[in-house]
Design a protein around this nucleic acid. Structure first.
Lengths: 290, 290
DNA sequence: GCATTTGATAGATGTCATCTATGATAGAGC
DNA sequence: GCTCTATCATAGATGACATCTATCAAATGC
C-alpha cells in the first residue's frame, strides 16, 4: 500500500528537482529518500523519475502520478485544517542541556506550568544529542549553549567558568586563585561538562596534574561533593549557591552563552508559547539576580 | 503526520461499526487497531469515536473527519488505478509446504517460469507457518495439505503414506509390511512430517519401539539416507523414486491431500496466473504418472 | 588530473506497528 | 446473584522496515 510519506518524498523531489535537496526538505537523509522513491516506483509499477547525472525529471508515468499525488496531499491538508479547530493544547518539545543547575530548572518548570492549555515536554541531554534532534524536527526548541552571535531575544545569559570549592576551604575568601596554588588539591570531574577538555588542557599546559577524588555525569551531585569538602571543580558560574565559593581561576577566561535554538519549521508555534516564555524568563532573571 | 494506514483503520471502523470486525477487515489484530485509532485521535486532537460497550459511533469531530477520510482514500484509489495501466508483471507469492519432493518442485518451478510477464515468489515452510501468512495476506496462494472437502480444481492429488526402504533391503519386494516385522529396524525421523505424531503413535500402540538412526528436517536428505541403507522411514508416496521401495505399512491408513489454498482477497489475480497454473499442473501430472 | 556533485548500495540501528496475553466493563441468560 | 460472552483497552515482546552512517560509481567543472 502506498503510504503518505512516500507521496511526500515524491512531491519533495518534484519541488526540488534533486534528490539531495528533497531529502533536506523532508528532513531525512539522501539514501532514505533514494530507497523511498525506489519503493514508490515498485509499488506503482513504473519508473517515476528519469535520473540523469545533472538533473532529475519526471517520466510520463511520473507526470500522471504527480497530478494524483498533489490531490492526495491537498486532501490530507484539508482534513488536517478541518480538524485543527478547537484544538485544546499545543505541545512544545523542549530540549534542555543537562549542565544547568537543578534549582533553576525546578523553578523554571514550575513557572512554565502556569500557562494554560499548553504542554511542555522536556528532554535533557548534551548539546551533541540535542542539536541533531532539533535539526530533524524531533524538538521544537533547545535551551542550551549557543555559539557566535545571537540576538538578544534568544540569548538568556552569558557567564564565565569559575573554580568551585567549599566555603570553609582556606581559599574560599579569595576572589581569584592561581592554578599553581591548587596543584595538590583533589578535583572533581564533571564528565558532562562541555568545557571538560579545555579545563584539562588548561591545567596540563601549566604543568599542574591534579588528582581526582570523584567523577560524575551529574552536576548537582558534583556540587554536593564540593560542598562536602571532597574536592574542588571548575564549573559555570550559574551553579553558585549557599555553601559554595566560586573564585575566578586566573588565566582561564572561557565563557559560555546559554540561549534558545529554535526549529525554523515550528518557529511560529514556539514563538507564541507562553510556557516557553515563562521558562526562559525565569532562567534569564535567575542569572541576573543570582 | 497522519499516515494512510490510519485512514484505513478509521474507515474500517466506520464500515463495521465495531473494532474487532474492523480489525479483521484490515487483517490486523484488534489491539493493533485499537492503538491505531487512539493514535489517529491524538494526531487530529479530537475523539473520533464514542465507545459504548455495545456499539461504536462517530463523534461530531469524527463525522467531519469521515468526509475527508473518504476523499483521501478515493484519491489514493484513483492514483492506483491510473498507474495500473501497462503493468508489466504480476507477482504471485506462493507458499509451498516443505514436505514435497525436490524433483517435483524443480520441474514445477521450471515449467512455471515459462509464463511471460509474471513472477513467482516462493516461500517454503510448514503448514502451521504458511496458513497464518495466507490469512494475513502475506501470501497469495499456498500449495500444501488441505483438509476436508476441496473442489477438484484446487485439489492436486491425494496419496497414502508408505514405508520407504532401500531397494536392496530384504523387504523391498513385498507389497505390504507388518509393523512387527520391522521392530528391530533402524528408523529415520522426518522431523518436519505433518504425520509424525500419528506415525509414532501407530508404532507404540502396537508395542513396537524402533531405534532411530537419523533425524532430519530435510525430506530429500531422508531419502538419501534410506537409499544408502541407513534405515527406513514412513513418508508420503510422492517421494517414490529409483533406489527406493515403498511397500504399504499394513494397518496405517493415513492419507493426505495436496491442494491449493487461495487468499480470497487476491483470488482474482491468482486465478489468472499462468505460472501458477503451470506449477500446479506439473505437480498434478507428476502425481498421476508417477 | 583532481575536487565536487550527483544518486545508488550495504550494513547497522532504532522506531514503531504489530503480535499475544490479559484485564476491565457491561449486557444477556439462567 | 452468577456465569458467559462480547466489547475495547493495556502491557510487554517481537519483527518489520524506515532511517542512519558509511561508502561507491559516475559525470561535470576547473
Amino acid at each position: 500500500m502506498i503510504e503518505r510519506y512516500l507521496i511526500h518524498y515524491f512531491l519533495a523531489v518534484m519541488d526540488q528537482g534533486n534528490f539531495s535537496r528533497a531529502a533536506q526538505q523532508c528532513r531525512i537523509s539522501q539514501p532514505t529518500l533514494s530507497v523511498g522513491i525506489a519503493k514508490l516506483e515498485s509499488l506503482v509499477g513504473h519508473m517515476l523519475f528519469q535520473r540523469t547525472n545533472r538533473r532529475v525529471e519526471l517520466t510520463t508515468h511520473g507526470a500522471t502520478f504527480a497530478l494524483h499525488a498533489r490531490r492526495i496531499e491537498a486532501e490530507f491538508a484539508k482534513a488536517t485544517l478541518a480538524m485543527a479547530v478547537d484544538q485544546k493544547r499545543t505541545l512544545i518539545r523542549l530540549g534542555l542541556v543537562s549542565t544547568l543547575p537543578a534549582l533553576w530548572i525546578e523553578s523554571a518548570t514550575r513557572e512554565a506550568s502556569i500557562a494554560e492549555g499548553e504542554k511542555l515536554e522536556i528532554v535533557e541531554g548534551r548539546m551533541s544529542e540535542l542539536a541533531p534532534r532539533l535539526e530533524r524536527g524531533r524538538l521544537d526548541v533547545v535551551i542550551g549553549i549557543v555559539n557566535g552571535d545571537v540576538d538578544d531575544e534568544r540569548l538568556l545569559f552569558e557567564e564565565p567558568y569559575s573554580l568551585a570549592l567549599s566555603d570553609n576551604h582556606p581559599l574560599a575568601t579569595r576572589s581569584s586563585v592561581d592554578p599553581q596554588e591548587i596543584a595538590d588539591a583533589d578535583m572533581i570531574v564533571r564528565r558532562s561538562c562541555e568545557a571538560l577538555s579545555d579545563v584539562s588542557r588548561f591545567f596540563t599546559q601549566r604543568g599542574v596534574r591534579p588528582s581526582f577524588s570523584a567523577r560524575t555525569f551529574n552536576d548537582d551531585r558534583a556540587v554536593v561533593f564540593v560542598r562536602a569538602g571532597l574536592g574542588m571543580t571548575v564549573m559555570p558560574r550559574c551553579f553558585r549557591q549557599p555553601g559554595i565559593a566560586m573564585p575566578e581561576l586566573s588565566g582561564f577566561h572561557m565563557r559560555r552563552k546559554i540561549g534558545m535554538l529554535i526549529d525554523p519549521v515550528t518557529a511560529g508555534r514556539v514563538k507564541d508559547s507562553q510556557s516557553l516564555k515563562f521558562f526562559a524568563e525565569t532562567l534569564r532573571s535567575a542569572a541576573t539576580t543570582g
